[in-house]
Amino acid sequence: MAISIRAMTVAYQRKPVLWEVNLDIPTGKLVGLVGPNGAGKSTLLKAILGMVPTIGGSVSIFGLDYQDVRSRVAYVPQRSSVDWDFPATVRDVVTMGTYGSAGWFWPLTKRERNRAHEAMEQVGILDLANRPINQLSGGQQQRAFLARALAQQADLFLMDEPFAAVDAATERAIVDCLRRLQELGKTTLVVHHDLHTVPEYFDYLVLLNVRTVAVGPMAETFTDENLQRTYGGRLTILDEVSEAIRRREAARP
């Protein structure tokens, strides 16, 4: 198993964002993580990486604790999470992906530079290598982020909405890239919004709405019934509970 999650719960200010999530993702799959807004998709990725505090539950990656396999996991955050006015070129940003394996102090070697070069080549932004990142279009920014993750040469990739508001060329480049990663035996978990392209892009599906609604191979999981359960009836009881908590706190003197 690439990722194995047991009974994980995450809450922001008493409102549960993830509730007793159980999830097993086999190695080598190209996985779509799908659910409505506020379903906790981004939070799930962050929780796997230990970037948000969990209330309970456990995560194991390749059968080990995340701390022990850190270098085998690459994360592609949402594009908007960084300031693109930062003074750096595309090459600088992509090279950052190699810092994890470059040691503390010593200058980068040819190995790191080559890895950055190859990563840019794979997503087709080699001609942008020396361009300042504040001159990139949204799609180019996304590709730079993808290249940065590739430069990490990880075995597990977690991507937060890489297809959000990108041009057609970028979408194609990302899909090609995902396919290539799968051919190399890598596992990829992608937060995705567009239900039309889900069956085409991925071969494994996680439907999430605070709880995991369904997990499994695309053909069995991508059914009307499952989608209805994910997007249709909200988990009303949880909503009511958190609303009640909020009201009680507001009523306090």
Partner: peptide, 21 residues
């Protein structure tokens, strides 16, 4: 100068710095 890469990562993208440990 010694910690240039750590500082650079932290300033640009804290999440990357954290996932790299």
């Amino acid at each position: 100068v010694l910690f240039r890469r750590q500082v650079e990562l932290m300033c640009f993208d804290e999440s990357l710095a954290r996932t790299q440990g």
